[in-house]
Design a protein around this nucleic acid. Sequence first.
RNA 1: GGUGGGGUUCCCGAGUGGCUAAAGGGGGCAGACUGUAAAUCUGCUGGUUGUACCUUCGGUGGUUCGAAUCCACCCCCCACCA
Length: 315
Amino acid sequence: MTRPVEIPALLGPTASGKSALALELAAALGGEIVSADSMQLYRGLDLGTAKPSAAEQRQIPHHLIDVLDLEAPSDVFSYVAMADAAIADIAGRGRVPVIAGGTGMYLKALFYGLDDLPRDAGLRARLDAEYDSEEGFAALLRRMAAEDPAALERWSRHRRRLIRALEVRLLTGESIIALQSRAGSGLRHPVRAWVLEWPREELKRRIAERTRLMLDSGWIEEAERLLSAGLAATPTARQALGYGLIGEYLAGRMGYGELAERIATATWQLARRQITWFRHQHPEAAPLAMPAAAGELLADLQKRHSALSSLRGEG
RNA sequence: GGUGGGGUUCCCGAGUGGCUAAAGGGGGCAGACUGUAAAUCUGCUGGUUGUACCUUCGGUGGUUCGAAUCCACCCCCCACCA
């Protein structure tokens, strides 16, 4: 079995053109796309997540898109497990996995790994029920002061992280902070990563334009359908940006102009968080100035690929 | 034309004599990030060479030791009456 010498990975904020470039890369290299997008995992979240179209998915095989029902929970570990499997599968068939995505935490965990601290779904559900509310938060703070002061100090405002810290504490008797190896030393896969970068104003403009386009091409209807099917009550998919705002629009609480503006703003805020993440959490990734450098990257990778293929006697 | 309400820092909006460069929210900027991450959370946000000075609350003038806050006139907006 031939293992690829390197796995190209395209990281970048929303609306930076990852999907399109990944498609070109995969086509040029004989590859298949491995998505790293927490929301495109879900069947049904289509227009709202700018998911690759059915035609695009026919043209190039995509992995980790449409693999979960809306009601299914998702988390980094299950993502990494699925991504590892997809990469192994693709490489095992002698194809090139092309990673593309914007979910920083998933990408970092896939590239560098995560401490496998214990978890217990039942316990977690109980803790959530008890503490994941405004009233519960105060009680959680009191309990953590006794159970795990170090975790409390680190995440004094993060309800979710404190609940997870308490879960680990109850399961192991130790503080999650002591158990974290904070390793992340070596790459788990031979990735060669780039971060797609755009001039600020241009990315903002792309986001605003894409928002309008998405709203005008069926996102509102999609949201209406999913919302009435219970999207708001799902554990993870409900966090997808925009659907809730569309719900408010449909309820008459804002006009179309305001809706478009608020979604564009929220999307820009997401993009900023992504940019910050990639700026600080991914030393392995090289900046790729869009749109100019996309063509060069394509040509460069194509050249390397054909050289490697002929070395292996495949070309 | 008349009566009433209103014009506040990028936006909305509180503030009716000193504790006000001015609450709060939004936006913006920077950052964090180990099993819900398109999530969750933190800091900064008038200017300048630091707790000092300068500029700012529609405009002008006035009262006062001191005004976004009081007075006069003017400009603009909204509601209702004509």
